[in-house]
Simulated assay, not measured.
Amino acid sequence: MMIKVSNVSKSYKHKQALKNVSFTIEGPKIIGFLGHNGAGKTTFLNLLAGLIVPSNGSVCVNGENVFNAPSILRDICFVAESGNFQEEMTIAQSLKANSFFYPKWDENLALELLQVFALNPKDKVRSLSKGMVSALGIITGFASNAAITIFDEPYIGLDVAGRNTFYDLLIEQQSDNPRLFILSTHLIDEASALFEEILILYEGQLLLQKTADEWHQHIVAVKGGALDVEQATAGLEVIYQHSFMQEMTAVVYANGRTIEGNNITRESVSLQDMLVYLSKQQKARVIV
Rank of each mutant, 00 (worst) to 15 (best):
E112H: 14
G141C: 05
A146M: 05
N145K: 13
T43M: 11
N120K: 15
G57P: 08
N108P: 00
L128M: 11
R126E: 10
G40T: 07
N84F: 04
N145D: 07
A147G: 02
L48F: 03
F142C: 04
T140D: 00
I31S: 11
A39Q: 08
E107S: 12
K29G: 01
V66Q: 14
G83R: 13
F67Q: 14
S127F: 05
D152A: 07
L47N: 07
V53E: 10
T43W: 07
P121D: 01
Q93P: 12
I148L: 12
L111Y: 07
I91M: 04
I31T: 13
A80R: 14
G131R: 06
G137A: 05
I148S: 11
N65T: 10
N84C: 06
F151S: 05
R126V: 07
K122L: 05
I156M: 10
G157H: 07
L128N: 06
A135F: 02
K96D: 12
A135C: 06
N37F: 08
V116K: 15
N46D: 01
K41D: 05
V53M: 03
I30A: 06
G32F: 08
T90A: 06
I31P: 09
A69W: 00
K122Q: 14
A97T: 11
P103N: 11
T43K: 11
Q115Y: 01
S94M: 06
A80S: 15
V79T: 05
Y155L: 00
G38K: 09
E87N: 15
K122M: 07
T149E: 01
P54Q: 11
F44M: 15
N37D: 14
A135H: 06
E87H: 12
S94W: 05
Q86P: 05
